[in-house]
Structure formats: structure tokens, C-alpha cells
Amino acid sequence: MKSGNIMIVGVGGQGSLLASKLLGHLLLTEGFDVKVSEVHGMSQRGGSVVTYVKFGEKVASPVIDEGEADFIVSFEQLEAARWLKYLKPDGHIVTSIQKIDPMPVITGAAEYPEGLIEKMKEAGAAVDAMDCLSLANEAGSSKAVNVVLIGRLSHYFDIPEESWIKAIEKIVPEKFVELNKKAFKLGREFEG
């Protein structure tokens, strides 16, 4: 892959900043120009959040627009569906099957749609749906969902596994490195 657009989507506070930091560091080390665009401030308060990671020989725009994402990495089903229109025709979704009710669902003003994974597949999207929370807990912490997702994403890149591991060692605080390496492997070896 000579260039690519990755979106990381989820709910504020789920750990997308670490995922984007890890990808940014890795891709820069691999010799790409990289831009990472984040959202701070109000949107972080439990709202829908999106981070863009773009790489290539030269990256201009820091954002990804509709129909431009090679990958959507999602921490939550509804968020994967919300951003589906940003996926390229041959793009790939890597999502956790976790469901988090947004406030309109909690208050009963709206319903959480059923069967989203199947519906995204019916719409022609390639979807890896994983129980990331269980895998993260298996690795040792529910907070490692982000690295489980990155593990699965790595499966689609021709970047050697050692480079991903090195990026984890560089970015993750030392006492959590082993846990996250395990989370990465569980994600990478996931059979969809």
C-alpha cells in the first residue's frame, strides 16, 4: 500500500487518541508522509468522535471525506454505521461489536438499530466484526480494545509484525506494553 486513509471512530473517551498516535508513529517510521486529525473539546464528552489518519508520499488535506476511507476502525457498531458513507467502494471496516446507547436511545426518543453488522455487509462493505472487549479482557484490560482493533487492522498491511510491535513499545507506557502486545496478537490472529 503506497498511500491510505484510515478513520478511527467511536464514542468520546474510548481510547482513539492512543490508536491514532500509534498508527501515526508507525507510518512515519515506515517512511510515509503522515497527517493525523483529532477532535478535542466538547465532542469528547461522550459524543461521536472521529480521528483521521492519512499517509502517502505527500499528504495534503488532514481530513477524510465521504467515499475516501480505505479503512474504518470502529470501537462501536452504531459509529461504524454512522460513518459508513466515508468508506471507499472497496474499503474495509474493522469494528468491535460493542454497543453503547446514545442519549436519544437511553431516553427512549430513538431505538438502537438491530442487525447493523449484517446490514453493512448487505450494503457491500467488507466488515470484520470482533468481540474486542472480550479479547481485550483476555489480554488483561478492557482498555486495550484500541490495540485489539489495531492488531486486526495490521493484518491488511504489508508492514512486518515487528514494526507494529516496536511502535507499541514506543507509544504505550512501559508497564502496559506486555498487555498491549498480547492484545495486538489477539486482534491480528482473529479469524473473521
Binding site: 464514542v11 468520546g12 466538547m42 465532542s43 469528547q44 464528552r45 461522550g46 459524543g47 461521536s48 471525506d65 465521504e66 467515499g67 475516501e68 452504531l78 459509529e79 454505521a81 454512522r82 459508513l84 458513507k85 466515508y86 468508506l87 471507499k88 467502494p89 446514545p102 442519549m103 436519544p104 436511545v105 426518543a109 430513538a110 431505538e111 438502537y112 438499530p113 447493523l116 446490514k119 453493512m120 450494503a123 457491500g124 462493505a125
Partner: peptide
């Protein structure tokens, strides 16, 4: 212009909320 696929599903909004 790039166009993406859409899903025929009503996606509830997820506004920021008090923690």
C-alpha cells in the same frame, strides 16, 4: 467527487453529554 454507500437505517445521533 467521491461518493460513499449509504445504509437504509435511521442512525440515532450521539450528542456530547454530561459524564
Amino acid at each position: 467527487l467521491h461518493e460513499g454507500r449509504s445504509l437504509d437505517v435511521e442512525i440515532p445521533v450521539r450528542p456530547p453529554i454530561m459524564c
